[in-house]
């Protein structure tokens, strides 16, 4: 029976249209709907299924962020996680919080909580870093199975099918290990209303990076955040001759 640690991140909801702040320092987050990173939902679902199959004994969810990160933890608890740990990072510190800091926090908690498996989403849909799983494995010096689309438990090991360019790779890793979830790993369940109510009774422990001995000093400086280029409007041409004319003009023929 294994203890599983899952990392969940609170991000701007996938369906929200992202707006860049006029001063280009970041994106508008005030008054914008947030929810759990979809890849983390897949990670949580996988952990909950392991518990249902009696492979896992306890599931602990961790989220780093401001006070509202607890809402994300509640969602995880409603999906079937046993307890939550909220690592409070807010204000300026949160703006420059990077995967390196999060991996150190996850690694420390994995050791403190005696976890046998760490599952995280392969990347967050806000910064698209795709680094946390890899770096957590490095900090812990544990094997890693990234981009998992199938996980099977063996005796003291996991067989993981990984999504790689144009195909699949199957690897076997010894436990303890770090796994990152890809889109096709499973279909996350919906947190139902009664379960959300029940989740309110589950415990959430609050800690700070300082308690864990992790320095969250900024390692980067955000220079500029910009909108992607807008696609230029096309035009309708009357006939083939005009098309050829335009193509010659553009130097394509």
């Amino acid at each position: 029976m294994a203890r599983v640690l899952v990392g969940v991140k609170r991000v701007i909801d996938y369906a929200v249209k992202i707006r860049v702040k006029p001063d280009k320092t970041g994106v508008v987050t005030d008054g914008v709907k947030h929810s759990m990173n979809p890849f983390d939902e897949i990670a949580v679902e996988e952990a909950v299924r392991m518990k249902e199959k009696k492979i896992a004994s306890e599931i602990i969810a961790v989220s780093c962020g401001p006070q509202q990160a607890q809402e994300t933890l509640r969602t995880a608890l409603a999906m079937g996680v046993d307890r939550g740990i909220h690592v409070e990072v807010s204000g300026k510190d949160y703006e420059t919080l990077q995967p390196i800091h999060v991996s150190k926090i996850l690694a420390k908690l994995a050791q403190d909580e005696k976890a046998d498996l760490v599952i995280v989403g392969k990347q967050a849909i806000d910064d698209d870093s795709n680094q946390t799983a890899q770096m957590t494995a490095a900090v812990l010096d544990w094997p890693q199975g990234t981009f998992a689309s199938k996980i099977e438990k063996g005796d003291g090991n996991l067989t993981i099918v990984r999504e790689i360019d144009g195909g699949l790779e199957t690897v076997k890793v010894k436990l303890p290990a770090v796994v990152s979830a890809d889109l096709r790993l499973n279909e996350p369940r919906y947190a139902t209303l009664p379960n959300i109510m029940k989740a309110k009774k589950k415990p959430i422990k609050k800690v700070t990076p300082k308690d864990l001995g992790v320095d969250t000093a900024a390692r980067i400086e955000v220079v500029s955040v910009e909108d992607p280029p807008v696609r230029q409007a096309g035009s309708v041409l009357a006939d083939v001759d005009e098309l050829i004319g335009k193509l010659k003009e553009g130097g394509h023929v």
Partner: peptide, 9 residues
């Protein structure tokens, strides 16, 4: 909802 999210991603 699940399909909508899956397809968007």
């Amino acid at each position: 909802y699940m399909l909508k999210k899956y397809r968007t991603l």
